[in-house]
Design a protein around this nucleic acid. Structure first.
Lengths: 147, 147
DNA sequence: CTATTTAGTCAGAGTCTCTTACTACTTGGA
DNA sequence: TCCAAGTAGTAAGAGACTCTGACTAAATAG
């Protein structure tokens, strides 16, 4: 079984559990919405930043942000440094959701740590982290949508 | 950065490279189609088996298989052991695509092995494999679509 | 032989994604 | 200062993938 499939299985298991747990906790948003919201910084983030971080087109990010705004998880502010840009920030409710998500993530990580072993889990996470740096550096895709 | 995000990044990088390379090699199918086709066994597989293996609904698998059949990668045969069932098999062309995909996977694995280190890569793959067994066992979802 | 389960289909809708085309603001020279 | 090029974001539309609900037909358990 290739490492691609193994990554897929683990990633999917993780995501499914997060969404289910958040749903049970009363937060209703989709995986795609969550992936984007998870990348919003403390001081707010630009739409384009978020799109690049999530690896999707600006238009897709705009689509998801519109929904997140309707749900009440994020708000848009004018960016004082650039009249074209907007700053996406988490609302109070959005911060609560983010905290809840982090709790659940921590819970899953603890469980996986028990399933593997603390040492193995640490190795796993470390290697994935290393890989991320290298893959991101070697990826020539700072921008989506070349057209 | 949570392990979920790290998994997502690695998984996505892997998948993107596979699709691009296969496309360059003249094989044109999508990620979803490839994920399903990759699970077809030597002796053929049932639609329901494939759906479960890929973690999607039977209807979604049928949708993808219809396309794979149109492309000419798979063929459907009657299952002699069950008149309701069909056996999905790879065509000659499908086997070529599978071999090409395996080559590319091996190439990516080699590269990752160099980027990390043979030892680290081995650990990574091993831990993911262990996790898969445990996660699959603990997942109570043998069937999609309960309705 | 009947009730239940299982394999697969059909129809329809929702979500997410992309491409093409555009407006408005910013920036780097000449 | 002004203009060309680049950047932030929007609009419209289409395509891919997924799901649920409802169904048919065959297999199986009793």
């Amino acid at each position: 079984m290739s490492i691609g499939t193994l990554l897929f299985i683990a990633q999917r298991a993780f995501e499914e559990e997060i969404v289910t747990a958040l749903h049970d906790a009363g937060f209703n948003f989709t995986i795609a919405q969550g992936r984007l919201a998870a990348r919003i910084g403390e001081q707010g983030s630009r739409l384009t930043e978020l799109a690049n971080a999530a690896g999707i087109a600006k238009q897709s990010a705009a689509y998801l942000l519109r929904q997140l705004e309707e749900i009440g998880l994020v708000a848009r502010q004018h960016d004082p440094r650039d009249a074209r840009a907007q700053l996406v920030v988490l609302t109070e409710y959005g911060r609560k959701a983010q905290l809840a998500a982090r709790d659940i993530e921590a819970r899953i990580e603890r469980r996986w740590q028990d399933l593997l072993s603390p040492a193995a889990f640490k190795e796993l996470k470390q290697h994935l982290g290393t890989l991320r740096e290298l893959v991101d550096r070697h990826a020539e895709s700072p921008e989506r949508q070349l057209g």
